[in-house]
Amino acid sequence: MDITRQRSFLHDEAQFARALARASAGAIIFALPLLMTMEMWELGFYMDRFRLALFILVTLPVLFGLSYFAGFEETFCWQDDLIDALSAFAVGFLMSAALLTVFAIVRLDQPLPEIIGKIALQSVPASIGAMLARKQLGQQDDSDKERRIRSSYPGELFLMGAGALFVGFNVAPTEEMILISYKMSPWHAVALAVLSLGLLHVFVYTVGFAGQESAGDDGFLSVFLRFSVAGYGIALLISLYLLWTFERIAGLSMMELVTATVVLGFPSALGAATARLIV
């Protein structure tokens, strides 16, 4: 009976309507910084169409994974997660469309691909925000089942990746990412990389990932390698992917490319480290 009652969250009309409202709030709050960022509007129309399409495609599995681990409703089978993910995308897309229209960024006299590009790009952070809304704004009931899923190692890596993507995405579109890397010497870059890794490790320890209870016995080196180094690696890969998506790396020398990745890797690493807080 207990499980049946929990199932009702996704199957009860009123409950689901409440969840949608909460998701809408989450979409606005989490996507607001990017909705009001000039570079995002411009990227929406000039960035490579295939890279944007790929970015949207990548979003769905991320939403699916977030639904599996956090979701705005308790889910028990993959169909539920898919419904969750698609609903979050719908909420994110519609909220972005509404706000961009109110801001007069999107106007009906613009060509359709331009309108779709602007809204679709914004719907990535907005739909992730919609998905996170349950955890942040709603009441949370950490069932034993959920906790068990979360403490699996691949699950932790996924959460770190999602956290890195979300926080990294919040700053990746801005010119400053490249500008900062231009100003930095190689030694600054090394210092930033060490700082990122150090903070990531401290955060993993103090924020306390689910796997930590057991990891505590494994000693410093094990936690450091399994979570901190792996997490920083994921953060750097996601940073590189974001820079590539936003066409920030074309024509950069190897040194500049690495520096830019390390610069964006800093917020991404913090996102990975605090994924437990955000997600």
Binding site: H11, E13, F16, A53, V91, L94
Partner: peptide, 26 residues
């Protein structure tokens, strides 16, 4: 699964395929 869940996920699927389609075509 409630009707509302079907509708919202249906809209989501439509918007998802629609935007990827438009961008790909473009």
């Amino acid at each position: 699964v409630s009707r509302l869940a079907w509708i919202s996920s249906g809209v989501g699927l439509l918007l998802f395929l629609g935007s990827v389609g438009v961008l790909g075509y473009e």
